[in-house]
Write a protein that binds this DNA or RNA. Sequence first.
DNA 1: TATGGGTATAACAAAAGGTTATAGGTGATA
DNA 2: TATCACCTATAACCTTTTGTTATACCCATA
Lengths: 286, 286
Amino acid sequence: MKTEWLESFIETAKTKSLSKASEQLHMTQPALSKQMRKLEEDLGVTLFIRSATGVELTSAGEILLQEGESILSSVHSLQKKLVSTQEACDLTIGTWQSMAAFYLPYQLASAKDHNRHIDIKTSHHYYDLLEQLESNKIDGALFDDREVQHTYWSKLLFKEDFYLFVNDQHPLAEKENVSFEDFKEEPIVVLPPGCDVRTLVEKAYNRHNLKIPIGNEIEFAQSIMGFISANLGISILPEIFMRHLQSSNIKALPITDFKFKREISLVAKNPDVGKMLYTLFFKTRS
Amino acid sequence: MKTEWLESFIETAKTKSLSKASEQLHMTQPALSKQMRKLEEDLGVTLFIRSATGVELTSAGEILLQEGESILSSVHSLQKKLVSTQEACDLTIGTWQSMAAFYLPYQLASAKDHNRHIDIKTSHHYYDLLEQLESNKIDGALFDDREVQHTYWSKLLFKEDFYLFVNDQHPLAEKENVSFEDFKEEPIVVLPPGCDVRTLVEKAYNRHNLKIPIGNEIEFAQSIMGFISANLGISILPEIFMRHLQSSNIKALPITDFKFKREISLVAKNPDVGKMLYTLFFKTRS
DNA sequence: TATGGGTATAACAAAAGGTTATAGGTGATA
DNA sequence: TATCACCTATAACCTTTTGTTATACCCATA
């Protein structure tokens, strides 16, 4: 049995709805439906009475709701105890500015109860990150390592799509979504070579047999947003940059024929440190 | 986290060896090795110090060994409590004689603490089993249902290889293993059409473009063993029949080019009853 | 220095777990 | 009663996980 099933079950039991619980659990409704059937099969009992209005607990479900929570909590406290056996040391994580600004802080904040001090260092290039890993200046790095030669421990954290970022006065801003055909001629603002976003954007242009029409090359991602905001250019950036544009005049359009995703991994020289970082900060938990 | 990983961990910790534990757990050593790495990754700690002589627990491993057992036992007692909420009813299982003689009793015995009376009925033909399922004369059936049309709930229990069973005076008894080439001409004793063993043996002969050379057709599997024991014939039977031949004069030879396996599934008309049967009697547990 | 017992890794197959798209049931409401 | 919003189930598909076999490599020891 998977403890994740138990977590899903408890959420479902509380909301009395697979669809509502599936949102809370950040998964689709069919996936949760399958999970609960697996749990029922594993336990050999029926947990829910399903209807078109939601689900209701059977008597077995009631018991599981009561006792499952206590089992889960003892599992969680065990996990904490185990991680705390690792000697407490200060940790340093290296990554791009976008991650440092809009992802890492939330991950670190979500992990309470750790007695460690975390530093964040930012870089513009792979080789910075790799060199700092090699020289132990950082304990882990966050970036898309698919195209990078290395032998370190690595664990995929998430994938994200790319969007076309335009000023809302830009002609394309009218559209719901765009394709390469719509903007292939137009110069774009890009990040410097050696960062994963640039690499993937170039790959996408190549895939369409296009040469990437570079307007400006800007190292500091935040200023790209300034460029677009001043309607001085457009850019292709991954989803995380959408967190910049709350109440701004920038629109992010899905690109229908941009087939690549950015895959951010946690990379560490020491596998033990990598696993600990992952468990402490990046493993999603209930 | 999977509770199965915990079970594997505890066995490994106790035997201080991945290979020894993997035997106990009925899996291969690489599989267990992977499982333990998964567990370590999930918990974010290193549990073993691995060496060429075995494994030793780290301090985190010691803690997990202590506390993991209590978590596992509360999970198991919860499962029991849940299953016992199902109203206690008598259950009937239908299957072949070989299963009824050499498999079912051990499975039923391994499941203590159930307050149910179990009946076993045997059949020689699929249609018997199916008809009895349909008419609720049996609650579940054990057989290879891959070639049988049905819409019932079904769950694979195990797979097994076929062997050539010969008297130890038979010329082939000298060999370590045999191939179709060695015995394709020789008449064999077979079970009647409509049982999975017969179907699979016929398929195997067909695969080799051979017609099955039937010597005798015997409905009662036990008497096939009698035939072989009296050196009156040879037969192709699945592994489970090897349990007949303790200290007998029958030898079972692997058939190198017999590519089919028998896959015994638990089949039930009512999925809830099926799951309960599975959990109570057929799910392997630590 | 061969050998046996131990773990790790590679390559592959099967099963599990996720996604989107879609069907079909139920109840509120126009 | 037609329709809509909302619920769960299923199908088709893809990715990841978990198992297998085959093989390499390490180390103690005879």
